[in-house]
């Protein structure tokens, strides 16, 4: 499974994407965030406060409690600021 990062999440983690082993299908995006944050360093810094994060599963916005299921790509980023 691919994880992609955007904006300051990307900068603080220090990479824009990576491959990880797919978590159990019933685990949520929030579970994934907690697992990544436990790596420490930039991951902990970027992901320690999930209320500052938004997510997309296979290019669709998804609340953090959404199960990852058989997703191919999970994106983590701050709230959008387009327009």
């Amino acid at each position: 499974m691919t994880i992609v990062y955007f904006a300051w999440v990307r900068e603080v983690i220090g990479r824009d994407e990576e491959q990880v082993e797919r978590p159990a299908p019933d685990s949520s995006v929030a579970d994934l965030i907690a697992t990544l944050a436990a790596r420490g360093g930039g991951y902990a810094q970027a992901l320690e406060d999930p209320t500052r994060l938004r997510a997309a599963i296979d290019q669709r916005f998804a609340p953090l409690d959404t199960p990852i299921g058989d997703a191919r790509e999970v994106a983590l980023f701050p709230p959008v600021t387009g327009g």
Partner: peptide, 27 residues
């Protein structure tokens, strides 16, 4: 459309200032 572009399109803005400082715009 413009209201929804602001809150539902996956864009992020970073400000660059003359003194070299940068800052991501908060939603």
């Amino acid at each position: 459309l413009i209201d929804w572009m602001k809150s539902d399109a996956p864009f992020w803005k970073k400000e660059h200032f003359g003194d070299g400082a940068t800052q991501w715009v908060e939603a």
